[in-house]
Design a protein around this nucleic acid. Structure first.
Length: 922
DNA sequence: CGCTTGCATGGGAAA
DNA sequence: TTCCCATGCAAGCGC
């Protein structure tokens, strides 16, 4: 395209940060989106200046992002962020910063630099004329005298050309391909968003301010003036117009141009590039939310929009019908506008599935992520007040009215729609949802969507299992905010491994999802309103296991010992720190090492156990071993050893992951102690191998290797602080459950005693001398299992299925022994840490080495089992790693049994831990 | 004793 | 500061 004035532009991008001003030609820089420009689009920042966008985070119309406050660039007045945007308490400045309302009145003839320097208004501007950069420099011309530059707004693809006369002018749609490709590449490289710029129906800048530019053409004088100065008098009745209102006027204006009034969003479809709308959805909702249009324009509208006719804003429909984008509800009569987290995210495919082949159309109303109480047995689903009042029949009495809602399969569910008076307000609930929830197998974290079929107005509900999503465009910020996606993101890795599909009404891998949802519940519910950037979400693509591997107690943290149910726990006041992943190994001597990989040469170096290394570590940081403080130094481990260690490490992680994923929710309750059992397993392994991987699930407040109950629970940040006499609900429930279990156990045992009376002799013949179980060495266990062992293992397998067979108890064997000998006194109750001492010698060694209080030792006095257990033998070092691995695999069911058994044991210290261990190790 | 029901409470998001 | 809403909790009820 010929450039105006015949100037051959040099494509260059200039950092909009006045403090930086770096210019890159040809895309050599690394650019990112900066602060929003009042005229739409965003400033352009280079990586050189290192200016994070978050530093300029501001509140948009929907308050999706807040940073608390900003200072007026003129007077320094502190402007509190948030609602001030919609109240027009400040105005955005293209050079960054904001301008308070007072200064706005005085600044019509000014422009301003970010530093607060007031400069005269820059230049007469034609349509779409825009300036990015330091206005003072532009005026002085010192930067642009020598070479004309193009400054590109990454969103707008509008190019401001500055020629020697310092008159920038905008060229739309040209060179954008070249320049935007740079940005596109950078965006993709950064992984922040998968933005596709290929199909700009209009320029991207128009996407960000879809109607502004076009209307500016019609409405604005050819000047670079404040938006507020160019209000459409027919629609702007107030002196303080927000961006959205400006957009409203634009949309209506376009609606007048031939589209139906109702279809404010229909109007947008041909305007918006779907891909861009997705990518820039946040800005889209900021500047031009159809829902906001609907809200604001409600009094203009005479008919509700019809989804099936394309009335509902659906930026993905044309090209990405399968993408899930939060759609603002098409309508709403509620006084309050619907929060984005309730915006339905129904794909067209799902809409099609609901409506079937009929001519009916679906109006997505809202959705809600089920909370624990929603999905619980109580059968009440709390409805967002605004949604209930907007979309459900009005009710005046707390008793409410019956409501029939059809699910996607056509089945009708009858609920009671009612409310409770609550703080001079109402709390709306759907009662009787349990059958529906159970039928659809919904759980906390899943999402229920509510829609309406038109004509007829019948309510329909769909559901969506909490699952992973593909790339996370900004437009789904609202979805992130609603928590489900957060949890989805958090556990996306596991989900991806499972190949979980997200289908409307489908049933993806339920067991795994249950696991994930169970685990994500605590996070999701608490983080429901958390707000993250897509980048943050990317960063959080970790499983809990992975996250915990990176969490360590702060080096300076001193734990305080608290007693809970007679067990000692370490409590750290300081938050955990993120550490580089390391591998702990145990030698045959019991000595443990920490291995860490150099980020430069990838060699593994030995570190002291107590060292916590930050995210990046190289050999040169190895001040503990002068021989290995250089990348040129040879690796201490032989390749074979290294391979063995890494294999075990990966195997451990893999098996641990798959093990967890196989469990259902109920099992997970008990198996949260898997680390304990796994540690026990590998503790044996450690005795058998040359260098074994010491596994642990690290709680952020505890040291590596700690296997106490706190460590093996998610890092909630709040450790148990219950005392033995605690009468809180949890403790009472736990005790009650234990009591029930014990009663059932006794009942079953008495029943089975009769049934098994005929088998006594056979069992007697098979029984071994007292204490044989505990006195066995691990290798004996592996190699000399007799049939009774097999039987026991079968029972262990049953336990692994989630059924805690309380009859399977060494006490039963004792009973058998008692049949042919003197009745034996029941072993004194052992502690969980007694189990640990038996099964986890190396870890205990580790704890001692690290000066940790030996919980096992604390409990050993009262545990006969620990007293009778000989030290785990050290196996020959000739044993290969493969053998070690096999041994660990064989013992995995036992570990799982320990999970269950110990899990129950926690409920009451009186449980016969030693007996459980007997049975597990038998 | 367990379940249901109705209300209270408190954290946190929104205004 | 207001208000939403997830959840706790106690009273009532039925088995």
């Amino acid at each position: 395209m010929a450039m105006p004035g015949g100037v051959a532009p040099v494509v260059a991008m200039r950092c909009t940060n006045p403090a930086c001003g770096a210019t890159a030609t040809g895309g050599g820089g690394d650019w990112r989106k900066g602060w929003p420009l009042r005229s739409g689009g965003f400033a352009l920042l280079c990586d050189k200046c290192g200016l994070a966008y978050e530093q300029f985070v501001f509140c948009d119309i929907f308050h999706q992002k807040e940073s608390g406050w900003r200072d007026c660039s003129f007077c320094g007045k502190r402007l509190h962020c948030g609602c001030v945007a919609s109240k027009n308490s400040y105005d955005l400045l293209d050079s960054g910063g904001v301008q308070c309302v007072t200064c706005m009145k005085n600044s019509t003839a000014h422009s301003v630099t970010a530093s607060g320097q007031v400069v005269p208004k820059l230049f007469p501007c034609q349509n779409n004329l825009r300036f990015f950069g330091k206005s003072d420099e532009l005026l002085s011309g010192r930067k642009f005298e020598q070479s004309p530059s193009l400054m590109l707004d990454p969103r707008n693809e509008d190019i401001a050309i500055v020629n020697k006369s310092n008159h920038p002018f905008m060229v739309k749609g040209i060179e954008a391909g070249q320049s935007s490709s740079i940005l596109r590449q950078k965006e993709i490289e950064n992984g922040a968003r998968q933005i596709k710029w290929e199909q700009p129906t209009l320029s991207i800048g128009d996407m960000g301010r879809p109607f502004l530019t076009r209307s500016q053409s019609a409405l604005e004088p050819p000047q670079y003036t404040r938006r507020d100065d160019n209000k459409d008098p027919t629609t702007d009745s107030t002196t303080s117009e927000s961006i959205s209102e400006a957009c409203l006027s634009m949309s209506l204006g376009i609606a007048h141009n031939g589209n139906r009034m109702e279809a404010t969003s229909t109007v947008e479809r041909p305007i918006l590039s779907p891909t861009t709308a997705i990518a820039e959805g946040r800005e889209l909702t900021t500047t031009l939310s159809p829902f906001q249009h609907a809200q604001r324009a409600r009094h203009f509208l005479t008919r509700p929009p019809r989804v099936g006719e394309g009335a509902v804003f659906d930026p993905t429909k044309d090209i990405f019908p399968h993408l899930r984008v939060a759609r603002p509800p098409a309508e709403g009569r509620g006084r309050n506008q619907l929060l984005p987290r309730y915006w339905p995210r129904i794909t067209d495919q799902e809409l099609q599935q609901i409506s079937g082949d009929s001519n009916s159309t679906i109006v997505p109303l809202f959705e809600k992520v089920l909370s624990a109480s929603d999905a619980g047995r109580i059968g009440r689903l709390v409805l967002p007040k605004a949604c209930a009042e907007a979309y459900f029949p009005p009710i005046s009495q707390p008793e409410g009215r019956p409501l029939t809602i059809q699910d996607a399969r056509g089945k009708e569910w009858h609920f009671q729609f009612r409310f409770w008076p609550n703080n001079n307000s109402r709390m709306y609930v759907l009662e009787g949802v349990t059958p529906c929830i159970q039928s659809l197998q919904l759980q906390a974290g899943d999402t229920v969507t509510f829609s309406r079929i038109e004509p007829g107005g019948k309510l329909v509900m769909g559901f969506r299992k909490a699952t992973n999503t593909v790339s996370l465009p900004d437009s789904q910020i609202s979805a992130i905010a609603n928590g489900s996606l957060l949890s989805e993101t958090l556990f996306s890795t596991a989900n991806e491994n499972l190949g979980v599909a997200d289908k409307f009404g489908s049933r993806p891998d339920e067991g795994s999802l249950q696991f994930l949802q169970k685990r994500s519940r605590n996070i999701g519910s608490k983080s429901r309103r958390f707000l993250m950037d897509a980048e943050d979400a990317m960063e959080l693509k970790l499983t809990w296991e992975e996250a915990q591997e990176l969490l360590r107690p702060a080096p300076t943290a001193k734990p305080t010992i608290v007693m809970i149910e007679d067990y000692e726990f370490e409590e750290y006041d300081e938050p955990p720190v993120f550490a580089k992943r390391s591998i702990f190994t145990i030698r045959a001597t019991g000595e443990q090492d920490q291995w860490i990989q150099c980020d430069d040469c990838s060699k593994w170096r030995r570190l002291p156990l107590t060292i916590i290394v930050a995210s990046k570590w190289t050999c040169t940081d190895n001040s503990w071993d002068p021989k290995s403080c250089s990348c040129s130094a040879p690796e201490e481990l032989t390749p074979k050893e290294l391979q063995s260690v890494l294999q075990q490490y990966e195997e451990m992680r893999r098996r641990k992951g798959s093990y967890g994923l196989k469990l259902n929710v109920a099992e997970m309750d008990a198996s949260s102690l898997d680390a304990l059992a796994t540690a026990a397993v590998f503790g044996d392994v450690g005795n058998q191998g040359t260098a074994s991987v010491a596994t642990t699930t690290k709680h952020p407040r505890h040291r590596p290797g700690c296997t106490c109950i706190v460590c093996i629970q998610p890092p909630s940040g709040k450790g148990p602080k219950h005392n033995p006499a605690c009468t809180c609900n949890v403790c009472m429930t736990v005790r009650r459950r234990f009591k029930t279990l014990m009663m059932r156990k006794k009942q079953r045992q008495s029943e089975r005693e009769e049934a098994e009376a005929s088998k006594k002799i056979a069992w007697v013949n098979r029984d071994e001398p007292e204490g044989s179980n505990l006195s066995r060495s691990p290798q004996t266990l592996d190699t000399t299992r007799d049939s009774s062992d097999v039987t026991m293992l079968d029972k262990v397998a049953d336990m692994n299925k989630g059924h805690i067979d309380l009859n399977f108890h060494p006490a039963a064997r004792d009973d058998h022994q008692g049949q042919h000998g003197a009745p034996q006194a029941r072993p004194p109750p052992a502690s969980m840490m007694g189990l640990l001492e038996v099964a986890n010698r190396p870890l205990d060694n580790y704890m001692k080495q690290n000066g940790l209080t030996s919980l096992a030792g604390e409990q050993a006095g009262g545990s006969s089992s620990t007293a009778t257990v000989p030290p785990a033998p050290v196996e020959s070092e000739e044993r290969t790693s493969n053998e070690v691995r096999v041994a660990s695999v064989e013992r995995e069911p036992e570990a799982m049994a320990v999970d269950e058994a110990v899990g129950d044991n926690q409920q009451d210290k009186g449980v016969d831990d030693a007996a459980v261990l007997d049975s597990v190790r038998a």
